[in-house]
């Protein structure tokens, strides 16, 4: 079991499946401008051929901050995360999936803001950053970034804004991906980490329980990058399975009665999309929306002759 100091940040990298993504995830973590972190990878380098290859190449020089947990024969991702979180002894922890990445300043900014805000609000037990969504195509060891857009919580066109996270947002959809959420590990342990009984939406459910019990600060800078493959759909589609978690919460109230009725009434009164209009994006110059096919070449500027012909043509049409 790794022996980590409580002063450091614990990072859990739960599953390694694609060497190119794993390499990038390691780069993302090792490029952090603060070095005071510990990374736990829930697979040993010997677990499979991919892991072994990457570990050899990427971790050719041993890094004492990185530790591998022994393999378990049958383990879900939630179980792996819980095991890794449990193995840490750090105050803060975060889940960094192999798909995602951070800005080099993610940990530096988030820990500094967290410390400052916690001095004001001792009840704070976590901090979330703004997120950019990265669509990409992975071909073997090659990653092509297709687009980068502002990430919005599912079911909402509204962004997260600086300040304490509004607890109502966790009901509508998972308000942030795990890559953006730095949390108090002891508080996570108090609520039992991830729910391993859930076949789906364990991350959202963990965020729900955590936020119901603790306040979380939102830092709106988009320092975290949630990568999504463009060649597949998300099997954990929140729109399709979103009601699963709501139903569980209602049932936890026990037999249907007045309490349950009140909860249902409150839930039905929640706005579907809490969306005050976005501030004006620009003041002077409009950026036209891209057409559906971005490969269409940019319209070429007309030369003098072309312009003259166009004018002549317009004049001809008017004459006719």
């Amino acid at each position: 079991m790794p022996d980590f100091s409580t002063e450091t940040i614990g990072i859990v990298l739960p599953r390694v499946a694609t060497p190119a993504l794993f390499r990038r995830a390691l780069q993302s973590i090792r490029a952090q401008s603060v070095g005071d972190w510990r990374l736990v990878i829930t697979q040993s380098p010997e677990a499979n051929e991919n892991m072994r290859r990457v570990a050899e190449v990427v971790l050719s020089e041993p890094d004492p901050r990185i530790a591998f947990l022994p393999d378990m024969d049958v383990e879900t991702e939630s179980e792996a995360i819980n095991r890794a979180l449990d193995s840490l002894d750090t105050e803060l922890a975060i889940i960094h999936s192999e798909c995602d990445s951070w800005s080099p300043d993610f940990l530096a900014v988030m820990t500094r803001i967290y410390d400052t805000k916690r001095a004001l609000l001792p009840g704070l037990k976590g901090i979330v950053s703004g997120v950019a969504a990265v669509e990409e195509t992975v071909s073997g060891a090659h990653i092509t970034i297709d687009s980068v857009t502002d990430w919005h919580p599912p079911g909402s066109v509204d962004d997260l804004h600086d300040g304490v996270l509004d607890i109502r947002r966790i009901v509508v959809g998972n308000p942030f991906p795990a890559i953006a959420f730095l949390f108090d590990r002891r508080e996570a342990r108090e609520i039992g980490f991830y729910d391993t009984t859930l076949p789906l939406l364990a991350e959202w459910e963990f965020h729900q329980r955590f936020c119901l019990r603790n306040d979380v600060w939102v830092h709106a800078e988009r320092l975290a990058f949630h990568h999504v493959a463009t060649d597949r759909t998300d099997p954990l589609d929140q729109a399709a399975y979103g009601a699963l978690l709501t139903n569980r919460w209602v049932r936890r109230e026990g037999e249907a009665g007045l309490g349950t009725l009140r909860i249902l009434q409150a839930l039905s009164a929640l706005p579907r999309t809490s969306a005050p209009p976005k501030p004006p994006r620009k003041d002077d110059k409009e950026t036209p929306k891209p057409p559906t096919n971005p490969r269409t070449p940019a319209k070429k500027q007309k030369g003098k002759i072309g312009t003259a012909l166009s004018k002549l043509n317009r004049a001809r049409k008017r004459w006719i």
Partner: peptide, 14 residues
């Protein structure tokens, strides 16, 4: 240190 569409827009517009 972050990436936001508004920031990129401001770099490219004119």
């Amino acid at each position: 240190r972050e990436w936001d569409s508004e920031q990129t827009r401001r770099i490219t517009i004119g």
